[in-house]
Design a protein around this nucleic acid. Sequence first.
DNA 1: CTGAAAGCGCTTACAG
DNA 2: CTGAAAGCGCTTACAG
Lengths: 321, 321
Amino acid sequence: MNIYDIAKKADVSIATVSRYINKSGYVGKKTAEKIESVISHVGYTPSAAAKTLSKGGSFKLIGLVCCNIDDLYYAKSVSVLEKRLKIYGYDIILSCTGESIEEKETSINMLLSKNADAIIFIGSVFMDGSGALLKTAAKHVPCFIINALVRGENIYCAYCDDRAAVRETTQKLSERGCRYPMFLYDVETYGSEKKRLGFSDACRNGHIEKISGGFEEISAAFGKLYDEFAPDAVVCSNDVIAAAVLNCAKKLGVPVPEKLKIVGHNNSLISSCTAPSLTSIDNGAEELSSITANNLLKLFNGEKFDAAIKIDYKLIERESF
Amino acid sequence: MNIYDIAKKADVSIATVSRYINKSGYVGKKTAEKIESVISHVGYTPSAAAKTLSKGGSFKLIGLVCCNIDDLYYAKSVSVLEKRLKIYGYDIILSCTGESIEEKETSINMLLSKNADAIIFIGSVFMDGSGALLKTAAKHVPCFIINALVRGENIYCAYCDDRAAVRETTQKLSERGCRYPMFLYDVETYGSEKKRLGFSDACRNGHIEKISGGFEEISAAFGKLYDEFAPDAVVCSNDVIAAAVLNCAKKLGVPVPEKLKIVGHNNSLISSCTAPSLTSIDNGAEELSSITANNLLKLFNGEKFDAAIKIDYKLIERESF
DNA sequence: CTGAAAGCGCTTACAG
DNA sequence: CTGAAAGCGCTTACAG
């Protein structure tokens, strides 16, 4: 069912049908009624492809790529971006890539082939090859990345200084008497590397351990680490790890925060749900997302803005510190 | 930069450029090299609108609508759907509506105007007006709804019997000696109504209370309810409420599960993170999403399938029961 | 107030 | 192996 069918049934020209549908230009009352009646009977939906092609604009589609939407941190970011961009008529194509470089490339190609107006990469996981992935995509469309610093033509970023956040938090821990701090992370990314560096900045002799798997596995794995190293403070690269550490501590009968202080990362819902609640480093996912959305809008409006924006972290102190 | 520009620069016809780009038909080696060289220099991206229009297919875009992606339950569902549909070349337009009927309608209209091939509604929140919203949308494209039963032309659903889940769980609670059960929910939806009915089925005299707000607010609000009604079991419509109840119980010094049994809903990450961990009703978000994706694919392949599929809930027993 | 016609940027038989 | 031309379904000056 296309505009010709409608025009024929209403006994008018396609130009008139188009004018009526888009409320662009005069349409006589009787004519309008005829057209309306035909459309409501047959359920016509105009072709977006034809419309876009003839009007010469874009589909107003923004690609959002994250490695895993089933993660509170990314979900929050997507939520903020979607809300903000929608106001200006942009829809969101969400692509979840997983962590392999092939999946990431496939996602980008799909987005490009659907003519996304821009791509927003959520998270430092997209820094593969020092940003090579981004730079390739940026040849076709403007690219925005959340939480990593990349310089390049057509690339814009907003990030939080995770290294400083972990450094200063670890220092605070030592001021409060912790002598055997440990840093725990789960995936090797640009972001977790920054955090590890921050930890090393603050204490040369602390242990850094990679720990991964589901909640129970992490909890069990920490049990072994505790036996071996007896840390009195643990800084974690996210809240789930922190919750698992807390869980293990309780099983072992180690009082938190008296004998073991725990700090999570991301200040997610989880940090309030545990008992004791978790002190957590908030790197401003919402603020970063909101800045990114604004920058994108500015770009399309021809306004000026900084290609790289850095924000401050916040240490949200709760009971585990 | 369009196919004419490329053709001119490469000194060939647009037909040849098209054949080269799509690898459809013969292109001489020398010609191919010329074209390749031009394209790699100028960074050409073909127009998806023109391509779709001339090929006569669709954009392969599926609308996903949920009221809030910043919620583990919906995020999980979106995650499963995206993964599965991507395999078949479908991209996802994610639209988060909030709860008002106007926002929902706006979302649907946007999706329709972008010619989504189908719309998947995640959650019973979209049952407004006994499904009137769905029925309107279904006049234009196939509609799928997760976790509600709706019958109608072009409407397909997969759901879990929440009423039975709550009824049977509440009965189990009474078998274990609970005499003063309470049901807590936060929003009035088709889904929470089913749960409340299930609770009433099992115990005529139990208290049903609406409780809402952030984690701390819910926790505080439960404190008052506890003072007034002294329940010995609480069934919650989601895990966050359950975690807040648990939090409050600890503050009040009420031992869980000895003096107070708590059951959450959705079996989310949160239910493992608390201590004691939360028993939770799992209504199969992943399974429902996966069934929905399969049905959608079947529909487009012309295969037969049931328009309404019901799955069983699972009670995941942990420490709070 | 309405219609004929050109044009948007591709694909694809068809002819050579 | 390559090109001319029609056609996809709209919008929009332009003429009336």
